[in-house]
Write a protein that binds this DNA or RNA. Structure first.
Length: 304
DNA sequence: AGCGGTCAAGTTGAT
DNA sequence: ATCAACTTGACCGCT
């Protein structure tokens, strides 16, 4: 086992490894009778549960200590028309059994798992329907989290609607209404154009929500805090191992599209003050497992 | 086997 | 007013 303190995280998919999650679309499924739709969904869910175990095994083998689970691990789970309960699918028991095997594996081998619902989940929205669907999605991810022992469901604060205080106040209210399995896993992340760490700390402190500090986003959307300060304040919001994000811009820090992610992490983008911390760092890079392994090597093997 | 078109969802900001 | 970007492919259906 590696002796360094930092636990690196791989996000959702692989670049070179033949480990692939399956998916489908509502439009394609809708051509089949309902029973056939359930059969197809069941096959995909079962396949994804088994693939997740392979993903975790790869991480374990290569000393990657954390894995982010794709939001579509159960495709269309909360779709307005094609949504479903896993219990209503053929072979539901097998699907759940296989996910629970992932939970057992990650506990035994200390692989941390996380979720990161995508941009459509907006708890601060002015539209009640959007909030309702967002909550349904969070509940689905909390359900899977319980099977696989994921301890983080990480979201952004959402839209601003020209009035940040109101948006944050709506956010607080909705967070207060979340069921416990979601609430105890929920984290907030600073984003690259609306909410800086400074914007989010009051909510995090008042409501005991951990802040996932994304240093790349912080470099895109600055506030009055230094990286060191934001790091320490973020770490303080965690009642368990803090989770941070790292990525590098595709064309350097001066390009207009610096928000886009590079294939790899430039080792100089990795904050030096993180080196001695007991943290999880999810690596957001397009080269996926290749980038995680390269960064680990450069930080801990090539350095002095 | 290879390739192009398509896919549930929200919000922002560039054109 | 429209539309790409964000994430980021994977899949289907055609050649």
């Amino acid at each position: 086992m590696t002796k360094e303190a930092i636990r690196f995280g791989l996000c959702c998919i692989f670049k070179e490894q033949p480990i692939k999650f399956r998916t489908t679309t509502a439009k394609y499924l809708s051509q089949f009778p309902v029973e056939e739709q359930k059969n197809r969904l069941s096959k995909i869910c079962l396949s994804n549960a088994k693939t997740l175990l392979k993903a975790l095994a790869f991480c374990h083998q290569h000393h990657i200590g954390s894995f982010r689970i794709n939001s579509q691990i159960l495709p269309l789970k909360t779709h307005p028309q094609q949504g479903y309960n896993v219990r209503d699918l053929p072979k539901a028991d097998q699907i759940i059994k296989n996910f629970m095997a992932c939970g057992k594996f990650s506990l035994e081998h200390d692989i941390r798992t996380t979720f990161h619902p995508d941009q459509f989940i907006v708890l601060s929205s002015v539209h009640p329907d959007v909030v309702k669907r967002s909550k349904a999605d969070l509940e689905y991810q909390a359900e899977v989290s319980q099977w696989v022992n994921a301890d983080v469901i990480n979201i952004h604060a959402g839209g601003v609607y020209n009035d940040k205080p109101s948006a944050l106040s709506r956010l607080r209210k909705v967070i207060d209404s979340l069921p416990d399995p979601v609430r105890k896993r929920l984290t907030l992340e600073n984003d690259d154009k609306s909410y800086s760490p400074e914007d989010l700390f009051p909510v995090c402190r008042d409501m005991e929500i951990p802040l996932v500090y994304d240093v790349h986003h912080h470099r895109c959307l600055k506030d009055n805090l230094s990286i060191k300060d934001a790091t320490d304040l973020s770490a303080d919001t965690w009642n368990r191992e803090p989770l941070f994000h790292i990525s590098s811009p595709i064309n350097g820090w001066k390009s207009p599209d610096m928000r886009k992610h590079h294939d790899f992490i430039a080792v100089n983008d990795f904050p030096r003050n993180w080196m001695s911390m007991k943290i999880t760092v999810e690596v957001e890079a397009k080269a996926k497992e290749v980038a995680v392994l390269k960064l680990m090597k450069e930080l801990f093997c090539d350095g002095k």
